[in-house]
């Protein structure tokens, strides 16, 4: 799973208020979000964020509202200027770019999908999809050809000449997705892109995104407040709270080893059997039960297999070689809901 780093965020602080720069030191000295607000009238947006985002993977950034996730994603293309810190994309410092360089960067390197779609209401679907290309100065014929390709790819063929207001929310977001893909940017920022859609449509859109990703291998940075969504699509997950990174890791790591009660509370209600795979609950050794399970089979599928084969142990294999053994008991242990300490007293804001 080793891959090169595409986007690197280093010591990023964002403090909203007139003297943000002066407040960084106070935060470094341990001032909390609430004390900063009460004593200095400044709002802590991001608190020393460090994330390395690997290329060609889906990086999910999740947190509740007010945790700074939308602020963070807007720093990557500098829709918001940081108070201090560094953002490197392919080793290049985004914060050092001139206005012209930044425009060029936004046109070619990084595109964005928005929570409320942000389509141009006076343009048809095909002209909306071609918007990024038009800004780049692509000629009309090529623009339409490439837009058409993406419209077909997201399943909107036949709606080219409709206006956004004539489409349902899910269809509008497909336009938003096609618009972002049409510029051929390597990095895709998705700001709660599916949060405004109802659950069935949201699942559809997640599938579309995963399908596209299998083929395109973009670096996708996906913001969400929905853990199921994060676990479903994320290769890596970062959890933010009050502008600080609480935990980062693969979905499995987060479910198995939540860093604190905040995360524990987050994962309390998810379907663990659908997230965890057999390798995450296996032990060293092997068994002669006769059942082999591939290492990335999720528990939800693995357990019926074992019941069906009437065994309580199975070998875990990777590329055909046995790498460990898994027991039914370990699986049940894995999907048992963790107990939060002092459950009633945990409050989040």
């Amino acid at each position: 799973m080793v891959s090169d780093i595409k986007v690197s965020i280093k010591n990023l602080y964002k403090i909203f208020g007139p003297n943000g720069k002066d407040m960084v030191q106070k935060v470094e000295d341990g001032a909390s979000k609430s004390s900063l607000q009460a004593e200095h009238g400044h709002v802590l947006g991001l608190n020393n964020v460090n994330i390395d985002i690997p290329a060609r993977r889906i990086q999910v950034i999740m947190g509740l509202s007010g945790s700074g996730k939308s602020t963070l994603i807007r720093h990557l293309n500098r829709l918001i200027e940081p108070t201090s810190g560094e953002i490197l994309v392919d080793g290049e410092d985004v914060l050092a770019m001139s206005d012209a360089e930044l425009r060029d960067f936004r046109r070619n390197k990084m595109s964005m999908v928005f929570q409320k779609f942000a389509l141009l209401p006076h343009r048809t679907v095909i002209d909306n999809v071609g918007y990024g290309l038009q800004i780049k100065g692509t000629d009309k014929a090529e623009m339409n050809e490439r837009s058409q390709k993406w419209i077909d790819r997201v399943g909107l063929s036949g709606f080219e000449d409709n206006y956004p207001a004539q489409l349902s929310g899910g269809m509008q977001q497909r336009v938003g997705l096609a618009r972002a893909l049409a510029t051929d940017a390597e990095i895709l920022l998705m700001d709660e892109a599916f949060s405004a859609l109802d659950p069935l449509i949201r699942n559809d859109m997640q599938d579309i995104l995963l399908d596209l990703q299998e083929e395109l291998h973009k670096t996708i940075i996906f913001i969400t407040h929905d853990l199921d969504e994060a676990l479903n699509i994320g290769d890596n997950i970062v959890i933010l709270r009050d502008g600080a990174v609480i935990q980062q890791g693969s979905p499995q790591e987060i479910v198995l080893n939540p860093a604190d009660d905040y995360v524990r509370d987050f994962i309390k209600d998810i379907n663990r059997a659908r997230v965890l795979d057999v390798s995450s609950v296996m032990d060293a050794g092997s068994t002669d039960s006769g059942l082999d399970l591939a290492h990335d089979v999720i528990l939800e599928l693995a357990m019926p297999e074992m019941i069906k084969a009437d065994v309580t142990q199975a070998n875990v294999t990777r590329d055909g070689a046995v790498i460990g053994v898994v027991t039914l008991a370990a699986m049940i242990g894995g999907i048992t809901r963790p107990v939060t300490k002092d459950e009633d007293q945990v409050t989040y804001r």
Binding site: N77, L79, L102, R103, D104, F105, R106, R107, N108, M110, S111, M112, F114, Q115, K116, F117, A118, L119, L120, P121, Y131, G132, Q134, I135, K136, R179, T183, L189
Partner: peptide, 21 residues
Amino acid sequence: DKEVLEAADAFGSSYRQKLLD
């Protein structure tokens, strides 16, 4: 709409493009 303007910025519009488009 602020979000549409943000989209225009995110796709690298110049000021002129933002005004006219």
